[in-house]
Amino acid sequence: MESNDQPEKYVISKGVDAFFISVHDIFRFIARFFREVLRPPLEVKEFIRQCYMIGYKSLALITLTGFITGLVFTKQSRPSLAEFGATSWLPSLISIAVIRALAPLVTALICAGKVGSGIGAELASMKVTEQIDAMEVSAINPFKYLVVTRIMACTVCLPLLMAYTALVGMMGSYLDIHLNEQTSITAFFNKAFNDIAFLDLFASLTKALTYGFTIGVVSCYLGYNATQGTTGVGKAANVSVVVSMFLIFIEEIIIVQIVNSIR
């Protein structure tokens, strides 16, 4: 290979041009996802396999973190409410906190770390070892098989995992309340769901769907377009987590603003 002596020309600068090209590429990537998602053949088996990998394989971690989150949040809130003799409000407070904010956010952050890095590394590894090219030349559509299934699985599994996180979080909270106030589980859940509105559930579902889609798109995009050999694999995994988490927080702010304006 030879290079000529002419320097490359940039519209603004190398970095800024690269940023806008990446943004453009990501939108094209998302557009391709929507074009391919309903086009046959539907990759049902691979989708189920990915749901198992993303959903079922995350359950242990989600159970532990969700339970501890609920338990610790209750323990932290108790002294403040006890000052006003309002510990009976704990179930309502916890349920609002868990369902509106903690469950979607904790689930998304855990999945961004565990699932996002996994998908980023797996696809990047397939890319640098030419496995994706091998699919392409075997007349197989690798985007449909690898990307669409993973984004779909993330989008479907996140709401389910979020519901599960909310449940185990509430159970963690119940454990603390039961040990201190001897409240029955029925009374706890009656009080907990008294102050939960449909909008809360809808907002949480929207958040989980958005976060799941974000994690899927970011990690698949970075893995699928990985370069630089094995260094690229580590970079794809790392950047998948960082960018997913960053976008999740941005989306959290936007969704909360929208929901609060509706409320």
Binding site: M126, T129, E130, Q131, D133
Partner: peptide
């Protein structure tokens, strides 16, 4: 058919 340098087998 395309045979890749390292086989490119699906891991």
């Amino acid at each position: 058919g395309f045979c890749f340098q390292n086989g490119a087998l699906y891991d």
